[in-house]
């Protein structure tokens, strides 16, 4: 089954991390796009339909948002996407362990996955499910 009509947007300043996930989703037929900072990702969201955003937390905010501390960028990004692009489903992929911050993300409707803990296939299936409402293994 082809999922080319669904675009998955990856935002991570360490793109090698999401590359395997991207390869697997592309093999499943998704259109995948990657950026390394929040500003570039917002530009892309402004111009394109995105089904699922997969975002890091600790990453550069980029030129358009110079005042944001890079350890907090993901939280600002999720709030902005929730407000400006409410149809985009959000998955956060990071290593933060602060439960109050994770709950804040969850309250905004984001799914939180810890880097290195979720098997690749499970992560890909979760994204697929968020994008299409259907899961295939």
């Amino acid at each position: 089954m082809s999922h080319y009509r669904h675009t998955i947007l990856f935002v991570d300043d360490e793109p090698f991390f999401t590359e395997p996930l991207r390869l697997l989703l592309e093999a499943k037929g998704f259109n995948c796009v990657s950026f390394t900072d929040m500003s570039s990702a917002i530009d892309f969201l402004d111009q394109n339909d995105v089904s699922v955003l997969v975002s890091d937390i600790m990453m550069p905010s980029g030129d358009a948002f110079p005042g944001i501390d890079s350890s907090e960028t993901g939280f600002h990004f999720v709030s902005m996407v929730r407000k400006e692009f409410p149809d985009v489903r959000i998955i956060c992929l990071s290593v933060i362990g602060d439960q109050s911050k994770i709950h804040k993300l969850k309250r905004q409707g984001a799914l939180y996955l810890r880097k290195g803990e979720t098997p690749l296939d499970t992560a890909a299936s979760l994204i697929e499910s968020k994008a299409t409402g259907v899961t295939s293994f």
Partner: peptide
């Protein structure tokens, strides 16, 4: 984590 996922891929 990147190594683990790369091996899985």
């Amino acid at each position: 984590g990147a190594i683990k996922w790369s091996i899985e891929a």
